[in-house]
Design a protein around this nucleic acid. Structure first.
Lengths: 343, 343
DNA sequence: TTGTATGCGTTATCAA
DNA sequence: TTGATAACGCATACAA
């Protein structure tokens, strides 16, 4: 049986209050007393029971992180980036493994597990306009991504439209004119897919290139497999692209694979650009040109905002979007490699 | 303020015990009473406070998963595979981000966070022989990997040696004779690196091929980057391999990248085999030949064992090692692709 | 500086 | 079938 504060108090010949004071770093304790308590703690291998403390204080020191799929490299790397700066531990829950069921989102936001965390960093796939009321939760919440425009919570987002436009303009600057878009969500009006499509179309428009619907490849979930499938669909349609802008790197790598399987050369026949700057793209053949959306800063910012709110920071909902960049690799410019990955 | 059981009881005109009975599905309740309680619960948006329940029962319904790095694809996919079959939620903590500090391992096993989980699935990097006593913990523990041979806990492992031997034999069967090993941990005697090296050497030995130390590439952490670096080291040494057996897929993809950057053709000049069967290898160029260690079964088994122990299953420590297979891709046999990934 | 007593929300014991 | 009440282990007002 694990030792309790009572046991420690008895052993040290003090009251539980004193033990509690020692454990919590209360300053006004006589050194001799503190030493006795610490000795008793060591003797008994005492460890504080976090559950009991949580019940009493109402705080847990744990942050929840809910992402669509941990097996998607972007989210795995995000979780890793996010956990590092967090002093508190992070409870990683998987949300919406079926690709965005609305009921799952409700469960995540209002389920009883919320008692186990002090706050939640949430990357929702299944929410959209009309769900704002769901976000009115009685605990700190930071949203990742663009799904909900006017919710009453902090958002940390990417510059989806601007970055997508810049990526497309970069391809146009290389002389490409038949640029496919991979990852389109037909009918969606908010959300990353819609915003990136907007940026893509805006770039085409500004360059006087007429958008060709046959070049738009649909992919609900943004996996390698769905990227390959969307690419296949575009090619089978006879659309003959000379470039691909994929809405994330997993799609891009899937699309690139499909192109190569069919004997098309990347980048000579078809240039490929992705989005996310995952590590994998530094080692693909060719290496992947991609949008760096500032993942590290997104993670750090989300954790910082949440910590602030848990400490009672009030004020207007924040909207933060770090600057982006384009990392050029061999998938758009022959021989341009970018293998050095961050340690 | 969130409603408590007291509030529900008052509203329904019953005692808290009755509310508790309803919430917990206790059968002997008069239907009319149950309905009144359920109505009150709905009215008040009551949700059970898991912290309080945990304090009282000593169980949380949460399983801990501690892996070296969530950004390594194998562990991300493992976490995802493992979470799916778990009825209980899984608390994913990151362990040993600095690559295996012993103190971190101790903290994971004995720290106060253990109160927050009913049991732990742990993939330790930093433990070895002599640390058995650390594993004598007062809660259910399932270890992944081979680090500790004789600890008093359940293990779910891969058939490291056999699989490594099979992979090497496969390369020998293709006529390769100068097979590099990438991912070696010099001086290690247990652990995946040592076991896979054993299998590699045994295969060479059985084929009458003399091992060449110059073909052994060291890599402490098994990332793409370290794979590329180890490959570079072997090549810079002038060792001229005609094949590479990398101890995991990330290393293999890094090594393959390095080979290609230097103008060596895969598989014509150098064949490459990895280990883990991560999804990424199905889309690389060429696709990666790899050992499928049975990740899904490992995850399922670990969760099943842990659930059993939390329910009080006694008995000898289990040692489970699912069967493995070799998935052939284009990195060893030209034109042999394996793009179809599981949905 | 330290001790006593109370309650956080739930489950379990026992009685009714 | 239901109710009153005592824990679970800790933090904190209030006293000393």
């Amino acid at each position: 049986m694990a030792a309790t504060m009572q046991d420690v108090a008895r052993r040290a010949g003090v009251s539980v209050k004193t033990v509690s004071n020692v454990v919590n770093g209360y300053p006004h304790i006589r050194p001799a007393t503190r030493d006795r308590v610490l000795a008793a703690i060591a003797d008994l291998d005492y460890q504080i029971n976090l559950t009991a403390r949580n019940l009493r204080t109402g705080r847990t020191g744990i942050i929840g992180l809910a992402v669509p799929e941990l097996s998607l490299p972007y989210f795995a790397e995000l979780a890793y980036s996010g956990i590092q700066p967090a002093e508190s531990e992070v409870l990683t829950g998987i949300s919406e493994p079926l690709g965005g069921r609305w009921g799952r989102a409700v469960e995540i936001l209002t389920g009883s597990r919320r008692h186990l965390t002090d706050g939640l960093i949430y990357s929702p796939l299944a929410l959209g306009p009309g769900d704002e009321r769901l976000l009115d939760v009685p605990y700190p919440l930071v949203l990742l991504g663009e799904r909900i425009f006017h919710g009453p919570v902090d958002h940390v987002t990417m510059r989806n439209t601007d970055a997508a436009r810049a990526a497309t303009e970069y391809l146009l600057g290389l002389g490409r004119r038949r640029i496919a878009a991979v990852g389109v969500h037909p009918g969606e009006e908010v959300g990353s897919a819609a915003l990136r499509l907007d940026g893509y179309r805006a770039a085409l428009d500004a360059a006087g290139v007429r958008p060709d619907p046959a070049l738009e490849g649909e992919a609900g979930l943004w996996h390698r497999r769905t990227g390959a499938e969307a690419m296949a669909e575009v090619l089978d349609r006879g659309a003959r692209p000379d470039a691909v802008f994929a809405f994330n790197d997993a799609l891009a790598l899937g699309a690139m694979h499909e192109l190569q399987v069919r004997g098309l050369r990347v980048p000579e026949d078809v240039a490929v650009v992705g989005f996310d700057a995952i590590d994998e793209g530094r080692y693909s053949n060719p290496t992947l040109t991609t949008v760096d959306p500032g993942r590290e800063e997104i993670a750090r910012t989300a954790v910082r905002l949440l910590h602030g709110r848990t400490r009672g920071a009030a004020g207007e909902p924040q909207r933060v979007a770090p600057p982006f960049g384009i990392l050029v690799g061999g998938s758009t410019e022959p021989g341009r490699e970018r293998s050095a990955s961050k340690p």
